[in-house]
Design a protein around this nucleic acid. Structure first.
Lengths: 145, 145
DNA sequence: TGATATACCTTAACATGTTAATACTTGTGA
DNA sequence: TCACAAGTATTAACATGTTAAGGTATATCA
C-alpha cells in the first residue's frame, strides 16, 4: 500500500503559507495606501537598515531572487525611491541606495508597522513569539545549523 | 524620532519566507521530475484526501485564491489529472475530482514526500516540530482563536 | 596571453499571487 | 414577478516566483 501522507491540514508547507497570509494581511493593508508592494517595502527596509548595498547582498537580505530584484529595482528607480550605480572598480557589480523619498516612506510607516508587529507579539505572547522565530530560523536553508 | 522597526533579520514575514524556502526546496526537487508545480501538487493532495469537492471548498483547503485555482484547474484538466463538472442543482457551482492519472502521481510520490516530511521532523525533533505547527496555526487568519 | 571558467546581472517564459471588473445564477423582498 | 442583492466563477492586469538562457566583466591557469 501507498505510504501515508500527513493530512493537508497538518502539512508544514501549507501551515507556512497560511501563517504568512495571516501575518501579511495587516501589512498589505498598510502598504495599500502607500502604493508600494510588500516586496518593494522589504527592499526599502533592508536599504534603510544597512545603507548602500551591492545588488547581490541586497537580494540575499531581502530574500529575493535576482530576477525579481532586477524588476523591483527598475520599478523603485522609476518611482524615485532608490538610485543605482555601477561599481567603477568591478564593473560587473552595481550599488543600490535608498533616496530621501524612499526613506520618507519608511519613516511614515514605521509607527504603524511597529504596531502590527507588537500586535502579533501580543497575540502569541512574547515567549512563544521568540520561540517561533527560532524554530523558523532552523528551517532557513542558509541557517548555520 | 521615528519608531524603531525590528531588524529585518528578526522580522516575522521574512522568517516565514525563508522557512518556506527551506521546506520547499526538497519538495520542488521531487516535483520537478513529475512536471507539476507545488500548487498543482497541493490541489491533487487535497482532492486525494477529501475526494470530490466543490471549487470553493477546494480553494480553501488548498490555500489558493480563486483566480489561481481557476488557472490551475485548467492546467490540470489539460493534463488529464482532474475532471470538472457543473452542479446540476445549483448551476453556479462546480465539482472537481481527481482522475486515476492524478491519483497515480500522488501514489508515485507519496513515499518520497513522506520521507521529506520525516527528515524535517528529525531535523527539528518531533516535539519542536509539533510546537511549530501549533504556533503557525495560531497565525492562520482562519484559525478559530 | 589566451582560452576557459566564474561572477554579476538582465531577459525571457511560464506559473502563481493579488485586486478589480465582469458574467452568470440563485435568493429575496416589495 | 420584477428589481436588486448575494453567491460562484472567470477574466484581466500587474507584480512576483522560478528556472533557464544570454551578456558582459573579471579571474584563473596552462
Amino acid at each position: 500500500m501507498a505510504p501515508k501522507l500527513p493530512s493537508t491540514s497538518r502539512s508544514l508547507p501549507i501551515a507556512l503559507i497560511r501563517a504568512r497570509e495571516g501575518v501579511m494581511l495587516p501589512i498589505r493593508d498598510m502598504l495599500g495606501e502607500t502604493g508600494i508592494t510588500e516586496q518593494q517595502w522589504r527592499v526599502l527596509r533592508v536599504l534603510s537598515e544597512y545603507g548602500r548595498l551591492d545588488a547581490k547582498t541586497l537580494a540575499d537580505r531581502s530574500s529575493l531572487l535576482f530576477p525579481s530584484l532586477t524588476r523591483i529595482a527598475t520599478t523603485l528607480r522609476g518611482k524615485g525611491l532608490i538610485t543605482q550605480e555601477r561599481d567603477d572598480v568591478d564593473r560587473r557589480r552595481q550599488f543600490i541606495e535608498i533616496t530621501a523619498a524612499g526613506q520618507k516612506i519608511i519613516d511614515d510607516n514605521a509607527g504603524h508597522s511597529a504596531q502590527i508587529v507588537a500586535e502579533f507579539k501580543a497575540k502569541l505572547g512574547a515567549e512563544d513569539y521568540e520561540t517561533l522565530l527560532d524554530l523558523l530560523a532552523r528551517l532557513d536553508p542558509n541557517s548555520p545549523d
